[in-house]
Design a protein around this nucleic acid. Structure first.
Length: 331
DNA sequence: TTGTGTTTTATTGCCTCC
DNA sequence: GGAGGCAATAAAACACAA
């Protein structure tokens, strides 16, 4: 026995044996309200109608008053004193509490799920149970409550997860939509550039010797089908002006929800978080570092000779770096 | 009636607190 | 070190389908 704890039920008193006896003498449960049972001082007739155990005093009183139950038991039904002895010497059995007792305990549990010694004694007295039984009931009840609580918490977490997942999926869809749109615009831009290039060939020949004006973009070349579009690197101030040109016009080109995201992304106070789930660990590392140093959504590229440097690629909205051509086009 | 799954009551061993 | 709480578990009681 752990900690030298004494378990009353393991060495029963005579009163407990009587309890067993009464429990085993089963009769249909009484439907009397619990208040009647308790307020009447746990009258013998009340608990005799149950499967519950009884206080020793109750039993004594019951015997003394020769209640119908004891009269039957002593002289009738099962016959003689041998039967009585048999009952007294039966091994301990579990007894279920009556509905009323359980209801009372439940109400008490609702008030306070912990049991102070005084309350335990009082409850035991009221219900005609042993204090330990009351303690055990509360212990088991707490365990059940905990299990239920865990189930509730789990359900809440599940719901929360489902909702987040749905939101995530929506964001993914929106991302794809935006990506497709960027690609479309890029194609448009490249076509335009190509047409422009063809018509300018003759002009270029004639002007080839003249110094060019400061280019909008250092490099903007279309190398034909299937080839990679070279990165267009813009200086930040150029892009900023492009932004204002593009979005500050009287009639904004994009007013729908999709493009408003772009507008939001252009707000310097808005830090766009790319979908890192699509990135490899290396990419994440690079991204993480660059985002740390360049929280701005635009790459702070000072050296145009290193377009593929982490800094140059850091703020690509999670899109391929080619997509930056869009900004050049927009400008 | 019986087999089986679930619920309830009770025990055990360990742990914490005073 | 004793009292009490908790987790794990046993076992009786109960519910219910076949």
């Amino acid at each position: 026995m752990a900690g030298g704890r004494v378990y009353p039920n393991t060495s029963r008193s005579g009163a407990s044996n009587l309890s067993v006896l009464l429990h085993n003498r089963r009769v249909p449960s009484s439907a009397e309200p619990l208040d009647t049972l308790i307020l009447s001082g746990s009258s013998p007739s009340a608990f005799l109608g149950s499967r519950s155990i009884m206080c020793f005093e109750d039993v004594q009183r019951a015997k003394g008053t020769q209640s119908p139950f004891f009269r039957a038991f002593d002289h009738g039904e099962n016959g003689d004193d041998e039967d009585l002895d048999e009952y007294f010497h039966q091994p301990e059995k579990k007894r279920r509490l009556t509905v009323d007792q359980v209801q009372f305990l439940e109400k008490s549990f609702e008030v306070e799920n912990k049991l102070e010694p005084e309350r335990k004694i009082q409850l035991a007295k009221d219900l005609g149970l042993q204090p330990r039984q009351v303690a055990i009931w509360f212990q088991n009840r707490r365990a059940r409550w905990k299990t239920k609580q865990l189930e509730k918490d789990y359900a809440a977490l599940q719901a929360s997860y489902d909702s987040l997942k749905a939101e995530y999926n929506n964001l993914l869809k929106e991302k794809d939509k935006l990506k497709a749109e960027v690609l479309q615009l890029t194609d448009k831009f490249l076509l335009k550039e190509k047409e422009k290039g063809n018509s300018d060939v003759s002009d270029m020949d004639s002007l080839s010797q003249e110094p060019q004006e400061k280019p909008i973009a250092q490099e903007s070349a279309y190398e034909g089908e299937g080839s990679k579009v070279s990165l267009v690197v813009c200086k930040q101030e150029d892009i900023s002006s492009a932004k204002s040109d593009l979005f500050d016009s009287d009639s904004p080109p994009y007013t729908d929800g999709v493009h408003s995201s772009l507008l939001e992304a252009c707000d310097s106070s808005y830090v766009f978080e790319p979908d890192q789930s699509d990135l490899s660990q290396d990419e994440e590392d690079i991204l993480g570092k660059s985002m740390l140093h360049h929280p701005c959504i635009f790459p702070k590229v000072e050296d145009d000779d290193y377009p593929d440097s982490p800094a140059a690629n850091s703020c690509n909205f999670g899109f391929p770096v080619e997509d930056h051509a869009f900004w050049s086009w927009a400008y």
